[in-house]
């Protein structure tokens, strides 16, 4: 397969996004505020022994812990939300039909439709880490980047599958997708974004093991903050869990999406909204 079509999507979405100049820049402003806010939160609680003890797995520093949590959970929201929002956007604009008459595979269309969101999110996450490192003294000196990138790639695939399932809902019901909402709220609650899962009651910890974000954040924190690599059992366990999750959900999500498009073609509702 060539990358010609995916690249065309990326370019088109980049041009569309940057045509709204104000909003484009505004999206960076929020990063600064949330980083500063969590800096003060960690000033408040970071030196408490109980906090440091709960975070010992990741080196004990709350600010660097939460920085990675909020930065990388951006991928969760993008993975879950961007497929459905771009499909809905194309449906509303009426461009979905125009795409579907071209000899382009459905999987190419759905996967390509979110590239820009992921590229933009990577940029934002980079800025989070940069701000944390440069202005607030988070130490990434020992970071082991390769396993973190592997975890990131698997994370993107895992979250995307969920996002494609959510897009399938939107395709048929046009609005009100329960899946994305449920997964995103539960993931934030139990996945260890703002606090380590070790402080959760036992049953919530068990629940957290069902969500890919738990493994993503664990692997990324272990490799970026502790410098662990593929030799570390915890890291490989996380990566293996993400692989299993992706291998199952990605094909399933594409099948569901194909079904959703079929349904819309049956109803003649490809251009409805």
């Amino acid at each position: 397969m060539t990358l010609r079509k995916p690249q065309a999507f990326l370019k088109k979405d980049f041009l569309m996004e940057t045509s709204y100049r104000f909003s484009f820049f505004l999206q960076f402003g929020g990063i600064f505020f949330s980083v500063v806010m969590f800096y003060f939160v960690s000033e408040l609680i970071g030196s408490a022994p109980s906090v440091q003890q709960s975070l010992s797995r990741y080196g004990g520093n709350y600010f660097s812990f939460v920085l990675i949590g909020i930065a990388f959970s951006n991928f969760l929201s993008v993975g879950l939300g961007s497929f459905s929002s771009s499909i809905r956007g194309e449906q509303m604009m009426g461009t979905l039909e125009a795409m579907l008459v071209t000899p382009t595979r459905l999987s190419t269309i759905i996967i390509s439709s979110s590239q820009w969101s992921f590229a933009f999110t990577s940029l934002r996450v980079g800025i989070y880490l940069l701000l944390g490192g440069l202005l607030f003294g988070v130490d990434f000196g020992d970071a082991n980047v390769i396993p973190a990138l592997a975890a990131l790639l698997l994370t993107v695939i895992a979250f995307s599958s969920l996002g494609i399932i959510s897009a399938s809902f939107i395709m048929i019901f046009k609005r009100g997708d329960p899946i994305a909402w449920l997964i995103s709220s539960t993931s934030t609650l139990v996945g260890g974004v703002f606090y380590p899962i070790s402080i959760l009651p036992d049953w919530l910890q068990k629940l957290s093991y069902l969500f890919p974000i738990t493994y993503s954040l664990d692997a990324i924190r272990l490799s970026l903050l502790q410098g662990y690599g593929f030799a570390n059992q915890e890291v490989t366990r996380d990566l293996a869990a993400l692989v299993v999750f992706s291998v199952i959900t990605l094909p399933v999500s594409l099948v569901i999406f194909r079904y959703a498009v079929r349904r819309a073609k049956k109803d003649g509702s490809l251009a409805y909204y």
Partner: peptide, 19 residues
């Protein structure tokens, strides 16, 4: 409605040509 209204005619054609 089947075009990207915020893009130029040429950009629209470029995108669809790829597809």
């Amino acid at each position: 409605r089947s075009f990207y209204w915020r893009l130029s005619g040429r950009r629209n054609l470029e995108f669809f040509a790829a597809l």
